[in-house]
Deep mutational scan, measured.
Amino acid sequence: RPRTRITDDQLKILRAYFDINNSPSEEQIQEMAEKSGLSQKVIKHWFRNTLFKERQ
Rank of each mutant, 00 (worst) to 15 (best):
N22A: 01
I20W: 04
R1G: 10
K35R: 05
E54C: 05
V42C: 12
S36R: 01
F18K: 10
L51D: 10
L11T: 08
K12S: 09
I43Q: 00
T4N: 15
Q28W: 02
G37S: 06
Q40I: 09
L11S: 10
L51S: 08
D8V: 11
E26H: 15
Q56L: 05
A33R: 13
E54W: 05
K41Q: 04
N22L: 03
R1N: 15
K41W: 07
K35H: 03
T50K: 11
N21Y: 06
I29M: 09
T4K: 03
D9Y: 10
L38Y: 02
P2R: 09
S39E: 15
K35S: 05
I43Y: 00
R55L: 09
R5Q: 15
I6T: 04
P2M: 15
D9H: 13
Q30D: 02
I20T: 14
I13P: 01
I13Q: 13
P2L: 10
F47N: 02
S23L: 09
Y17T: 10
R3L: 11
F52P: 14
E31T: 06
D9C: 12
L38H: 00
V42E: 13
L38K: 00
T4H: 12
L51F: 04
D9K: 09
K44T: 11
R48W: 05
R5S: 14
F47R: 02
K44E: 11
E26M: 11
K35G: 04
V42A: 12
D9L: 10
I43S: 00
Q56R: 11
D19L: 14
T50F: 06
I20C: 08
K41R: 09
H45E: 14
S39K: 14
L38M: 12
P24K: 00
M32D: 00
A33N: 08
T50Q: 13
Q56T: 09
R15E: 08
K35T: 04
I6M: 15
R48S: 08
T50S: 10
Y17L: 06
D9V: 06
S23R: 07
K41H: 13
Q40K: 14
T50P: 04
G37K: 10
N22G: 12
E27K: 10
K53F: 04
E31A: 08
R5A: 04
N21K: 05
I6V: 10
K12C: 08
K44Q: 03
S36V: 05
V42I: 10
S39P: 08
R5P: 15
S39T: 07
R5F: 14
N22V: 14
F52T: 14
E26Q: 12
N21C: 09
R1C: 11
K35I: 01
L11C: 02
N22T: 03
P24C: 02
N49S: 11
A33L: 03
K44G: 12
Y17C: 05
K41P: 03
K41D: 15
D8H: 11
Q28H: 10
S36Y: 04
Y17Q: 09
M32W: 01
R15H: 03
S23Y: 13
L11F: 07
D19R: 12
R5D: 15
S23E: 14
Q30K: 15
N49Q: 06
D9T: 15
R48F: 07
Q10T: 04
I13H: 03
Q40P: 08
R48D: 09
W46N: 01
T7I: 03
L11M: 07
E26L: 11
Q40W: 08
T50C: 05
D8G: 12
R3K: 12
N49V: 07
G37T: 09
N22H: 03
I29Y: 13
Q30S: 06
I29K: 04
E34K: 07
F52R: 15
F18Q: 12
D8C: 13
Q30G: 08
S36E: 04
D9S: 14
I6W: 01
L51E: 07
R5E: 15
W46T: 05
E26N: 14
N21P: 02
F52D: 09
Q40T: 05
